[in-house]
Simulated scan of single mutants.
Amino acid sequence: MSKEFEITREFEVDATPDEVWEAVTHGTGAYLWPMDPPEPRVGGAAAFGSTVTAWDPPRHLTIRSEDVGFSVQSVNQLEHVIEARDGGRRAWVRYVHSGVFTDDWDNQYDGAAKHTDFYLHTLREYLTHFAPRPVTFASLDGPEASTGADAFAAAGRALGLTDGDARGAELTVHGPQDFDAVLDYRDPYFIGLRTDSALIRLFGRNHWGAPVGISVHDFAADADAKATEGAWRNWLDKVYSQFP
């Protein structure tokens, strides 16, 4: 049964409105994934067949699609309202994700809401620590075994995280190789790791019936997306080679 949804979030960030606008229109690979920027006008084309319905830089952007192409969703709309704070040195952002889910409403809404919090946190991490550095993006999903109920907890253990490690902890992470990082986000569904040159995101999508995923937003000048993807894929395969 089709039903409308709306997910609204508001936050402030240490970035100018222009920097926020640039991130949400052209720098999406730095916190989401790379996508074609919207045409700069109302009625312009945007990513995934959507249309720009509000364009007022750097204050208001709305992008809408009524032919989403997903079996569980028919309408999707993303709106950003951006206002200056502290004389323009900071920005306040109101983000609204709305649309229509056509099936599995509770599960789809829960997943979308929790992903929204993680993506917007990653946006703030990018704006605070890395903007406007160019990004190299890599992403991958784990094997079928990573859809299991305890799969995301297993990934956390493999990284070397303990139950006592909370946001803000500085630690040595056991990834494809050991590296130092700040644990910038952690809940039962997501893990965020920030190094001097990258944002590493782990997604516990097993909670919604999908494999565990990883994305790496790498701001190093010599970043290699293919090598990064291969290294983390090998790591995931090893984690789940004898799971559960």
Results as ranks from 00 to 15, higher is better:
2 S>A: 15
3 K>M: 14
4 E>I: 05
4 E>T: 15
5 F>P: 06
7 I>P: 07
7 I>R: 05
9 R>G: 08
10 E>L: 07
14 D>W: 04
15 A>L: 10
17 P>C: 05
17 P>W: 07
18 D>F: 09
18 D>S: 14
18 D>K: 13
20 V>I: 14
20 V>C: 13
21 W>V: 04
23 A>T: 10
24 V>L: 09
24 V>W: 05
25 T>W: 10
26 H>D: 09
31 Y>D: 06
31 Y>T: 10
33 W>S: 14
34 P>D: 01
35 M>G: 05
37 P>V: 06
38 P>I: 03
46 A>E: 00
46 A>G: 03
49 G>N: 02
49 G>P: 02
51 T>A: 03
52 V>G: 00
55 W>S: 06
57 P>G: 08
58 P>F: 03
58 P>W: 05
59 R>H: 14
59 R>Q: 13
60 H>W: 02
61 L>R: 07
64 R>C: 01
66 E>C: 12
66 E>M: 12
66 E>N: 15
69 G>S: 02
70 F>I: 11
71 S>P: 15
71 S>T: 13
72 V>P: 06
75 V>A: 05
77 Q>H: 05
78 L>S: 12
78 L>T: 14
80 H>S: 08
84 A>P: 15
86 D>N: 12
89 R>G: 04
92 W>R: 15
94 R>Q: 10
94 R>P: 08
95 Y>I: 07
95 Y>L: 11
97 H>Q: 11
98 S>K: 11
102 T>N: 12
106 D>W: 04
108 Q>R: 15
108 Q>P: 01
108 Q>N: 14
109 Y>I: 00
112 A>P: 07
112 A>K: 05
114 K>A: 08
115 H>G: 03
116 T>E: 07
120 L>G: 08
124 R>D: 01
126 Y>V: 10
127 L>H: 00
129 H>F: 09
130 F>D: 05
130 F>S: 00
131 A>S: 11
131 A>Q: 14
133 R>C: 04
133 R>H: 03
134 P>Q: 00
135 V>G: 06
138 A>Q: 04
140 L>I: 13
140 L>P: 11
143 P>N: 06
144 E>V: 06
149 A>L: 12
152 F>S: 09
152 F>V: 01
154 A>D: 06
154 A>C: 06
156 G>Y: 00
158 A>Q: 11
159 L>N: 08
160 G>H: 07
160 G>T: 02
167 R>Q: 15
167 R>S: 09
169 A>S: 15
173 V>L: 07
174 H>S: 14
177 Q>W: 11
177 Q>L: 10
177 Q>Y: 04
177 Q>D: 12
178 D>A: 10
179 F>Q: 11
180 D>E: 12
180 D>C: 02
180 D>I: 00
182 V>N: 02
188 P>E: 02
188 P>S: 03
191 I>R: 02
191 I>T: 13
194 R>P: 07
194 R>G: 01
195 T>D: 02
201 R>M: 10
204 G>E: 05
205 R>C: 09
205 R>T: 12
206 N>R: 06
207 H>P: 05
212 V>S: 08
213 G>N: 00
214 I>T: 09
219 F>G: 03
220 A>W: 08
227 A>L: 09
229 E>K: 15
230 G>P: 09
230 G>T: 04
233 R>W: 01
234 N>P: 02
234 N>Y: 01
235 W>K: 10
239 V>H: 10
